[in-house]
């Protein structure tokens, strides 16, 4: 009793805390796996209403005002469906909805996952058919008479989906996350021509390098190595041009574009066959920035290639 100046009490409390902490750690160890599994199951249950998740690879993208669940095909990892889980301000609290959109932008379905609207009229938004069938078109939206604010919240969610659905399917989904590993290839002139047959000279220009392949002091081929800014990083391309201005081949040697559509510039046929003619150029829809970069490279070549073969390089 005399010795109890608080220190021992503190020690008792501390040891009690330790025991409790150990107990909690033990229980946590027991339950943590199951909690994770249950949480995931709960999330999937809502999506399962629209798609059979087992058939897809599921990916989750967290945005400011919601989450996008990306369902990719298991065979070629193309985006098959997007399930948007967005929130908007309703009459009471936020209204949270799940909107499932197919690749052809048709709406598979939508469901209200959370709402706290005024009972009676406001709660009519649950299970109501808002006549929203095409993801990029909210003009057909039917609101509920008498529940303007609640249906405006629903409309806000649909509008948000409609604004991004198209671009999401075309690769805009990953706009905010650059891929980790750049696409880099070791390319040399040998990939186009047999370098033993030619004298190779290297000329530095403003935008890159030109390899001049000469045979008997005549310029036979030019290999342009040009780099230009892409979406996230530089894009570097090798373009081999023959003497008759026909394009032998082109290879993207370095790029760091968006996963999905942006990376399509690699191995893509841009329909560029005559060096000074860009009119046939095919851009990649959905990856405008990336293909614009490629186009820019080609236009640099198109501008100077005739002059280069005519001897402009020697100047």
């Amino acid at each position: 009793m005399k010795n109890n100046n608080g220190l021992i009490s503190g020690l008792v409390l501390l040891s009690l805390g330790l025991i409790c902490g150990l107990l909690l750690a033990f229980v946590n160890e027991l339950t943590v796996e199951r909690i994770e599994a249950e949480e995931l199951r709960l999330k999937f249950d809502a999506i399962e209403e629209f798609y059979d998740i087992a058939n897809y690879d599921l990916e989750e993208i967290v945005l400011e005002n919601g989450t996008i669940y990306v369902l990719k095909s298991q065979s070629n990892s193309e985006i098959e469906h997007l399930v948007y889980s967005f929130r908007a301000k309703g009459y009471g609290e936020d209204v949270e909805m799940l909107v499932a959109v197919n690749k052809d932008l048709s709406v598979e379905g939508y469901t209200v996952t959370y709402q706290n609207e005024s009972p009676g009229i406001g709660t009519k938004i649950v299970g109501n058919d808002f006549n929203y069938n095409q993801a990029d078109d909210v003009s057909t939206f039917d609101s509920i008479g008498g529940a303007t604010v609640s249906s405006n919240a629903v409309k806000a969610i649909f509008t948000e989906v409609s604004e991004r659905a198209q671009s999401d399917f075309n690769g805009g989904l990953y706009d905010d996350e650059p891929i980790d590993e750049p696409n880099e290839l070791e390319i040399t002139v040998d990939d186009f021509y047999d370098s033993d047959l030619f004298d190779i000279e290297e000329v530095e220009i403003e935008q890159g390098t030109i390899y001049i392949l000469r045979q008997d002091n005549q310029i036979e081929h030019l290999v342009y190595v040009i780099s230009t800014p892409g979406y996230h990083d530089q894009i570097e391309m090798f373009v081999a041009v023959n003497k008759d201005l026909s394009v032998e081949d082109y290879i993207v040697s370095y790029s760091n574009e968006n996963e999905g559509y942006g990376t399509k510039i690699v191995d893509r046929d841009f329909n560029y066959s005559v060096a000074n003619d860009l009119s046939t150029f095919d851009s990649i829809s959905g990856a405008t920035v990336s293909s614009d970069a490629v186009r820019h490279i080609f236009s640099i070549i198109a501008e100077r290639t005739e002059d280069d073969f005519g001897g402009g390089l020697d100047d």
């Binding site: 009793m1 109890n4 608080g6 021992i8 009490s9 503190g10 008792v12 409390l13 009690l16 805390g17 409790c20 107990l23 909690l24 229980v27 946590n28 339950t31 199951r34 909690i35 249950e38």
Partner: peptide
């Protein structure tokens, strides 16, 4: 006698532990 001066914290620790266990079990 030891616990008396700190009995409220002790109660809280005990109850909090139990509640957390309940919460985790319920979550699972």
């Amino acid at each position: 006698a030891l616990v008396k001066p700190v009995r409220i914290p002790v109660y809280i620790v005990v109850i909090a532990t139990l509640v957390t266990i309940v919460e985790m079990l319920m979550h699972a």
